Amino acid sequence: MELCHQYGIPHSQFTAAGDGRWTALDRETALSYLAYTRTVRQGCGTRVPERDAQVGGDHFAYIP
């Protein structure tokens, strides 16, 4: 529903298949982008995983 709100489309259009509106790949891409944007910190625009050493990041990733 969040994506439908952001794109200004009805849920039925987003979930419709084979009618030339949103393909399965379109939906998957939009959902993936939503998941990505949820990892971006609002204040600084960085992503927590990029700084978290426990998941392969580096605490100093954004320090020049």
Rank of each mutant, 00 (worst) to 15 (best):
A30L: 11
Q6Y: 01
A24P: 05
S12K: 02
A53W: 08
P64G: 08
Q6D: 04
G43E: 13
P49Y: 05
I63N: 04
G20H: 03
F14P: 01
P64E: 13
T23I: 10
V55E: 02
L3P: 01
H5R: 08
A53H: 09
Q6G: 00
C44F: 06
Y33K: 08
P49H: 04
H5N: 08
V48R: 12
G18P: 08
T23S: 15
Y33L: 15
P64C: 05
A24W: 10
A16F: 03
D58Q: 10
H5C: 04
R21A: 06
R21T: 09
R51S: 13
T15L: 09
A17E: 15
A61S: 14
Q13W: 09
V55A: 07
A61L: 09
A53D: 08
Q13H: 10
G43P: 03
Q42F: 14
D26I: 10
R47I: 10
R38H: 12
T39W: 06
D26S: 08
G57N: 00
G56E: 04
Q13K: 05
C4Y: 00
L25S: 08
A35C: 08
T15D: 04
T15F: 10
A30I: 02
Q54W: 11
A53S: 11
D19H: 10
G56V: 13
G43F: 08
M1C: 06
G18Y: 12
V55T: 14
L25K: 08
D26M: 09
A30C: 15
A16Q: 04
Q54E: 14
H5P: 02
T39N: 05
